[in-house]
């Protein structure tokens, strides 16, 4: 059934978007679909909710009707130029708004593009640095999204959220060397053992404290040295 296939593809794309991995094409498809039906938007907020719960964040109950009622309120709102005056002016206003509409659309598109750049930069980081394979790490590496994001507006998908990893992940990210000869193998990030963690923290602290006497960076090395410190070390 082609409809079912389409839906599957959309869901797949949506989940890719959650992971910040959606391609340009998938993005367009999602935007188009979300304009057509509320289902995509609702699914999106369910995904967000699930991710928040996985991250053990405090979750505010999301009223799925909220966005709809806001949209309805906006619909009811009379355009400013029309409410102002009589015929000629109204026509003028209409012409104006017609002229403006593509522009403002462009502005929205620009915002989206900018957000997309941010997203891809994070992707690049993942590409060049680490491919988190361990579930736990993948969870914390992912940018935290605001909890309440039930807006079905396409632009609402792309609020660039800062990556706020919790402090408990102050530990270094580990990337073992890939096996030579195995081309294109995915780098699996492994969870470091406590011994390895302690060793890495210790050498990083010792290095930073030494660096404080050598470089010309003021107190930056001390900030680094203190950063990874953990209670009980």
């Amino acid at each position: 059934m082609s409809h079912g296939n389409h839906q599957d593809r959309l869901n797949e794309s949506l989940s890719a978007l959650m992971d910040g991995e959606a391609s340009e094409l998938e993005l367009q498809r999602l935007l188009k679909a979300s304009a057509g039906s509320a289902e995509v938007g609702e699914r999106w907020s369910r995904y967000q909710l699930a991710a928040s719960v996985l991250r053990r964040e405090q979750v505010a109950p999301v009223d799925s009707g909220l966005a709809a009622s806001i949209s309805a309120a906006i619909e009811r709102e009379e355009p400013l130029s029309l409410s102002g005056g009589g015929g000629a002016e109204a026509a003028d206003g209409l012409a104006n708004s017609r002229w403006w509409r593509p522009l403002s659309r462009g502005a929205v598109a620009a915002t989206v593009a900018f957000a997309a750049i941010l997203g891809v930069q994070q992707l690049q980081v993942a590409d060049s640095g680490v491919q988190p394979g361990g579930e736990l790490v993948a969870e914390v590496e992912r940018p935290a999204q605001p909890v309440v994001q039930s807006s079905p507006q396409p632009s609402g998908f792309y609020v660039p959220a800062p990556t706020t990893r919790s402090v408990s992940t102050a530990s270094p990210r580990l990337v073992p060397d890939s096996q030579p000869g195995v081309a294109g193998q995915a780098v699996i990030q492994q969870m470091p053992t406590p011994e390895l963690m302690r060793h890495l923290n210790r050498v990083m602290i010792q290095h930073s404290e030494q660096a404080a006497h050598v470089g010309s960076q003021g107190m930056v090395p001390f900030a680094r040295a203190t950063y990874g410190e953990q209670v009980g070390m």
């Binding site: 680490v130 270094p172 580990l174 053992t193 290095h207 950063y227």
Partner: peptide, 17 residues
């Protein structure tokens, strides 16, 4: 000890080990 048998890099911010 052998428990620290690891070959690879660890990254924290600008610091690499």
């Amino acid at each position: 000890g052998p428990e620290l048998d690891f070959k690879g890099r660890a990254i924290r911010g600008a610091t690499v080990a």
